[in-house]
Write a protein that binds this DNA or RNA. Structure first.
Lengths: 196, 196, 196, 196
DNA sequence: TATGAATGAGAATTCATTCAT
DNA sequence: CATGAATGAATTCTCATTCAT
C-alpha cells in the first residue's frame, strides 16, 4: 500500500469529496469546499491527488472495492444460484442505502466517465456486473436457468432493474417502497423470467 | 405555436446543442461551440433561450415530446398487454438508436437534473415511465399479470432493464447484441416474471 | 429646424430616454427599454440619434433650452438685482420640480460629461450659470452688491447652494422643506452675504 | 483590524481603483485595468473585494474616514463658530485638492449611489454634512447666528457652494481662482448671510 | 422611414492549480 | 509535508449597433 494511503488526510479528502460531489455534482463542487470539509488546505489536496478528476476516480475505486468485497462475501456463502440472485438484489439495495452519497455519484457522475475521463476503465464496475453473469452461467450449468438466456444481456437487465429502483430512491430522497419488498419483487420477476 | 418556434434558428440550435452536449457533456460544451455548430452568433442563442440550462431543458422537452408521441402511437395499436410490453421494449431500443445523441444526454445529463435544475420537473420522463405502469395495471385487470406485482416497482424494473442495456450501447458505441434479440430477451424475462 | 425634429418620434424618444435615464442611469439604461417606452423599434432610434451618447446630449440640449428660456423670461421682467436673485432661486427649485427626471439626469449623468463625452461643451449649462454672474455684475454696477465679490465665484456659490438642495430632493424623493422656504432661506443668506 | 486590511494588496487595489475610476468613471473602468495598475492579477481583486461595486464602496469608506477625521480635527481646535465655518471652507477646498481623484469620484460616481447601490447608506458623507449643521446650531445657541436659519437647509447651501466650486476645479482641471480667495469669498457670503 | 432579428466584441467573474513560505 | 494567497485562462452572457426586408 502506498505511503500516501497510510495517511489519514487521504481518507479525509475522499470522505469529504464523496459528500460534496454527492450534494453538488462534480462540476459544481469546488476544491476549496472539499478542502474545508476535509479540514485541510486547498493545496494539500494536490499532494494526495493529481487533480480534481483524480479525486473522483480514487473515490470510486476505494469505495467500489469495499462494495465488491462485501457483495462477493455475501453471495459466496450461498450455493443455490436463485438464492444468490435474491441475495444480490437485497444486498445491492442495502449497499445503496449504506453508501448513499457514493450511489448518487455513480448515478450521475461516474456515468459521465466516458466523456470526461476517456481513459478510465471502470473495471470495478464491470467486475460487479460480472458477478451477476457468473451466477447466471452457474445456474445454466446446473440446469436451473434457461439455456437461451444470454448472460451478457441478463446481467444488464437485472442490474438495470435494481439500479433504476435505487436511482428513484437516491434522487427522490424518500423510499416509497420498503427495501425488502422492492428487492423481493425485482428478484422474483427476474427469477421467474429466467428459470427453466 | 409561438413565434420563436416557427423559427428555423430555434431548431438549428436545439439540433446543434443535442450534438455537442452528447459529445462533450453539458459542462464541457461551450456556448460558442453550439453557436458555431448551429451557424449562428453566440448572442443569437440568447434570443431563443434564456441561458445554457434552458437549452438543455428545451432540447429535452422537444425530443421527449416526439418520443412519447411515437411510443403512445405504437402501443395504442395493440390490445394485449403482453404484446404491448414486448413492443415497448423493441420500440424503446429503436428510439434509443434513432435519438442516439438525446439518449446519451438523458443517460448522463438529464439525470443530473435533481442537482442543477431543482425546479425542473421531468414530466415527460415520468409520463413515459407511466406508460409501462398503465400497461401493467391493464394486464392485472384482465388477469394476465399477477396481482401481487407492484406497478410502481415493476415499471422501474422494466425500464431500468432496457435502460441499462441502452446505456451500454450508448456509452460503448457498439452493439454487441442485436436490438431485436436484446428486446426479445428482456421482455421475455419480464413477461414470464409477472405473468399469472 | 431640422426635418427630423418635426417628427413626433424624435420627441417620443427624448421623453422616453429622459424617463429611463432618470430611473436607471445612463449606463444601466438599455436602448431597447427606451425604444419600448417610446413605442418605436430599436432600430428607429438610430434614425433620429447617432448613438446612445447622442440621445443624452440631445435630451439635455432640448430641455436646457426650455429651462434657460423660461428662466430668462422670468428674471428679465424684474429690475432689481436682489429681486432677480430671489426669483432665480425660487424659479430654479420650481424648475427642478417640474423637470424632475431631467434634474436627476443632470445630477448624476451630465456631470460625467467630462468623462464620457469629452468633446461635449455644456454650453447651455454655462449660459445658465452666467445668468447669475450677470445679475451680480449688474448689482455691482448699481452699487447694491459689494465690489469685492468675484462674480465667477459667487455664481457657483449661489448655484451650488441651490443645487445641493435640489440634489437632496431629487435623490431622496421627498421634500423635507417647502420649496418657498428653502428658496427664501438660500437667497437670503446669499443676498445678505453679498449686499453692500 | 481585519486580516485583509493588513494586506498591502488591499490598499494597492484601492489606490489603483481610485486613479482609474477618477480617470474613466466607474462604468468605463475595467477590472483588468485596475488590476494592472495595482500590479496584481485580475482574480486577486476578487480575494479582497466582492465585486466591482464593492471596490467603489470600500474606496469611498476608506478615504472618507480620513477626510472626516481630518476635518473634525481641524475644526475642533477652534471655539468660534464663525471661525469654524471659515476653516471648514478652506479645509474642504484643500482636501479636495489633496484627494483630487477621490473628489472626482464623489462628484460623478458616488452620487449615483441612489441608483447603483440602493442599499449603501452614505453615512460618512452624511456625517460630513452634519459637521456644518452642528457648527450652525452652536452659533445659534451662542447667539452669533440668526435663529431663523434652518440648519438642515443652511448646511446644504454651504456645502453646495463649496462643492460647486470644487466641481469646477475638479472637472476643468485648472484653478481659475486661488483656493484661499475662493474659500474666503464663500465663507464670507455665507457668514454675513447667517450672522445675527 | 421603420423594423427587430442578428451580430459579436467585450467584461466581470470563477476556480483549478501552483509555489513560496 | 502543509499552507493558502495568488494566478490568469477560460466562459457565460449582455447589449449597442447594423441592415435586409
Amino acid at each position: 500500500m502506498s505511503k500516501r494511503k497510510n495517511n489519514d488526510k487521504y481518507f479525509s479528502i475522499i470522505r469529504a469529496a464523496t459528500k460534496i460531489f454527492a450534494k453538488k455534482g462534480f462540476y459544481q463542487a469546488k476544491i476549496s469546499e472539499i478542502a474545508r470539509e476535509a479540514g485541510v488546505a486547498d493545496g494539500t489536496i494536490y499532494i494526495y491527488f493529481q487533480n480534481k478528476d483524480d479525486i473522483l476516480i480514487c473515490l470510486f475505486e476505494e469505495q467500489m472495492k469495499d462494495v465488491l468485497d462485501n457483495m462477493v462475501d455475501q453471495i459466496s456463502r450461498l450455493e443455490d444460484p436463485a438464492k444468490k440472485l435474491e441475495r444480490f438484489a437485497l444486498a445491492h439495495l442495502k449497499l445503496i442505502e449504506q453508501y448513499k452519497d457514493m450511489a448518487e455519484i455513480i448515478q450521475v457522475e461516474v456515468r459521465q466517465s466516458s466523456k470526461f475521463m476517456k481513459e478510465y476503465k471502470n473495471e470495478k464496475f464491470i467486475q460487479y456486473l460480472d458477478l451477476i453473469a457468473d451466477i447466471i452461467r452457474q445456474g445454466q450449468e446446473t440446469g436451473v436457468f434457461r439455456k437461451d438466456v444470454i448472460p451478457g444481456v441478463a446481467k444488464r437487465a437485472f442490474f438495470g432493474a435494481l439500479d433504476e429502483m435505487s436511482r428513484f430512491w437516491v434522487l427522490s430522497n424518500r423510499k416509497q417502497y420498503d427495501i425488502n419488498t422492492a428487492a423481493k419483487q425485482i428478484s422474483q420477476y427476474f427469477l421467474r423470467g429466467i428459470e427453466s
